[in-house]
Amino acid sequence: TAPCERCEGHGTVIEKPCPSCLGHGRVRVTRNVGVAVPAGVANNTRLRLANQGEVGENGGAAGDLYVDIRIKPDDMFTRDDDDLHCWIKVPMSWAVLGHEVEIDTFDGRQTLDIPAGSQPDDTVTLKNLGVTHLDDKNERGDLVAHVVVEIPKKLSDDERELIERFGEMHDTDAQHVVVKSRPSSGAKKGFFSKLKDALR
Rank of each mutant, 00 (worst) to 15 (best):
residue 64 D to A: 01
residue 49 L to A: 02
residue 48 R to K: 05
residue 49 L to T: 03
residue 55 V to D: 13
residue 52 Q to D: 08
residue 75 D to P: 04
residue 50 A to M: 05
residue 61 A to K: 11
residue 74 D to N: 15
residue 66 Y to V: 13
residue 55 V to W: 06
residue 56 G to H: 06
residue 47 L to D: 08
residue 78 T to K: 13
residue 59 G to H: 12
residue 71 I to E: 13
residue 58 N to W: 08
residue 56 G to T: 05
residue 57 E to A: 15
residue 71 I to W: 13
residue 48 R to E: 02
residue 53 G to N: 10
residue 65 L to Q: 01
residue 60 G to Y: 00
residue 76 M to E: 05
residue 63 G to V: 09
residue 71 I to V: 15
residue 78 T to M: 10
residue 77 F to A: 06
residue 52 Q to W: 02
residue 73 P to W: 03
residue 54 E to H: 03
residue 80 D to E: 09
residue 71 I to Y: 12
residue 70 R to N: 05
residue 63 G to P: 12
residue 73 P to C: 07
residue 53 G to L: 12
residue 52 Q to Y: 05
residue 71 I to P: 12
residue 64 D to W: 01
residue 75 D to T: 10
residue 80 D to T: 02
residue 66 Y to P: 06
residue 77 F to S: 09
residue 78 T to Q: 12
residue 68 D to P: 05
residue 75 D to M: 13
residue 69 I to C: 12
residue 60 G to N: 01
residue 78 T to N: 07
residue 60 G to H: 01
residue 52 Q to C: 11
residue 65 L to V: 00
residue 55 V to H: 10
residue 61 A to T: 06
residue 80 D to K: 07
residue 51 N to F: 09
residue 74 D to A: 11
residue 49 L to S: 05
residue 56 G to M: 05
residue 67 V to E: 00
residue 58 N to L: 15
residue 51 N to L: 11
residue 54 E to D: 13
residue 72 K to D: 04
residue 58 N to C: 08
residue 54 E to V: 03
residue 68 D to A: 15
residue 58 N to E: 10
residue 48 R to V: 02
residue 62 A to S: 15
residue 54 E to T: 03
residue 79 R to P: 07
residue 61 A to E: 10
residue 55 V to E: 14
residue 72 K to L: 07
residue 53 G to S: 13
residue 64 D to S: 02
residue 53 G to H: 07
residue 50 A to N: 04
residue 51 N to T: 10
residue 59 G to E: 13
residue 74 D to P: 07
residue 51 N to C: 06
residue 58 N to H: 15
residue 78 T to L: 08
residue 52 Q to T: 02
residue 55 V to A: 15
residue 55 V to M: 15
residue 60 G to S: 01
residue 58 N to V: 06
residue 62 A to P: 07
residue 73 P to I: 04
residue 62 A to N: 04
residue 76 M to G: 00
residue 58 N to S: 14
residue 50 A to V: 09
residue 70 R to F: 03
residue 52 Q to R: 09
residue 56 G to V: 04
residue 57 E to R: 11
residue 60 G to M: 00
residue 64 D to Q: 02
residue 62 A to L: 03
residue 63 G to W: 09
residue 51 N to I: 05
residue 51 N to K: 14
